[in-house]
Simulated assay, not measured.
Amino acid sequence: MRVVEAFRAAYGASPQTVWHAPGRVNLIGEHTDYNDGFVLPFAVPWGVTAALTPRADGVVRLLSLQASGEPVTMATREESAGWTRYVVGVLAMLGDRVAGADIAIDGDVPQGAGLSSSAALEVAVASALNDVHGLGLTPMELALLSQRAENDFVGMPCGIMDQAASALSREGHALFLDCRSLGSRSIPLDLAAHGLSLLIIDTQVHHEHASGEYAKRRAECESAARKLGVPALRDVTDLAGALGLLQGDERKRTEHVVTESHRVEALVGLLRAGAVKEIGALLNASHLSLRNLFEVSSPELDVAVEAAVRGGARGARMTGGGFGGSAIALVPVERLEGVQESVSAAYAERRFRAPRFLPAVPSQGAHRVS
């Protein structure tokens, strides 16, 4: 394995453990996680593999095959920067339970596609540390720890969805997650049995949450909840009444969050009833809400969704935090080529960078690599 060979070359010995954690794509339920709502992601075939051996001296040595290829050594956790902050943040959240570590990282999550490579990195490292130190943390506890690393150490106010999907997902299933209770259920998602495929359309536009727009949306949702006197927007039961008390952006954000959580529950109901071909309308409605009410889409995402549906997709939507990244399209297998041609032609007509197409296959969550 490439990451093990790199570990040996850098540190002169084999790693004590190797863990893989996947990225994720979200079928539906966008920007609902930090509003205590419902989400329905699943793990993708690409992820991050972490080879690790603990150290007792507090020193952290990190090697990424996607970075310089040379180890970065940190005597203190304050020395971390860039991608290393996600790893060091996990160590920081574990506190006195761990000291230092020698770590090698290899990843194949398409960068900038909104498939949550950061969560995959955090969960892979957290899982490896949990394993080698015998901490006994559950997958959900590892997800929560990884989320805290990103919130408190990196400074990105993400919800729990990405880390939970990476840690808990099962092959062939989507993860129905209640982001308040943290209760979850694996929902079978066998698209091929219904002659369907879920196509990821990578717009090749790098999404940049650090611009502040993601944090701004979260702040707007929290402000709206305070004005409505509820713990979170998930608790709004009278949507019409709530909208009458709000104005401007907070009104629009609230309408999206409440209706999006309802769409998640409706889609789960369709999947459990075997009506997989009928979920496309919910995907379309989700995209319109994200575009018009939550305002996190982009021209490239809108064109991808419109061209995919025009080319024969049963439904499509942007996925992830927005402002770039990827869209997903539910496509009959026999129309895959036509959908890709439709999107590619629409991009070429507008002189957008050519999109990349990836198959979204529900994959296994974090696991030890033998």
Rank of each mutant, 00 (worst) to 15 (best):
A81G: 10
G82N: 05
W83P: 05
Y86C: 03
Y86I: 03
Y86D: 00
V87W: 07
V88N: 00
G89K: 04
G89V: 04
L91G: 02
L91F: 06
A92Q: 10
M93S: 08
M93F: 02
D96R: 15
R97F: 02
A99Y: 11
G100L: 13
G100F: 14
D102W: 07
I103K: 05
G107D: 01
G107Y: 00
D108L: 00
D108M: 00
V109P: 00
V109H: 02
V109S: 02
P110T: 01
Q111H: 12
G112Y: 05
G112S: 02
A113P: 12
G114C: 04
S116Q: 07
S117R: 09
S117G: 07
A119N: 01
A120K: 00
E122L: 08
E122S: 04
V123G: 00
A124R: 03
V125R: 07
A126L: 14
A126D: 08
A126Q: 11
A128S: 10
N130D: 15
N130H: 13
N130S: 12
D131C: 14
H133M: 13
G134I: 11
L135T: 13
G136R: 12
L137E: 03
L137V: 13
T138E: 01
P139I: 11
E141T: 08
L142F: 06
L142T: 10
L142D: 03
A143P: 01
A143F: 01
A143D: 00
A143M: 01
L144E: 07
L144F: 03
L145V: 10
S146I: 09
Q147N: 04
Q147V: 01
R148V: 06
A149K: 07
N151V: 11
N151W: 07
D152A: 12
G155T: 09
G155D: 05
P157A: 02
C158L: 06
G159V: 09
M161V: 09
M161R: 09
A164I: 00
A164G: 05
A165Y: 07
A165S: 10
S166L: 05
A167D: 01
A167K: 05
A167R: 04
E171F: 08
E171W: 06
G172K: 12
G172D: 11
H173S: 13
A174W: 09
L175K: 02
L177R: 07
D178F: 14
R180L: 10
R180I: 07
R180H: 10
S181N: 03
G183I: 04
R185A: 14
I187S: 06
D190R: 15
L191T: 13
A193Y: 14
A193N: 14
H194E: 15
G195K: 11
G195S: 11
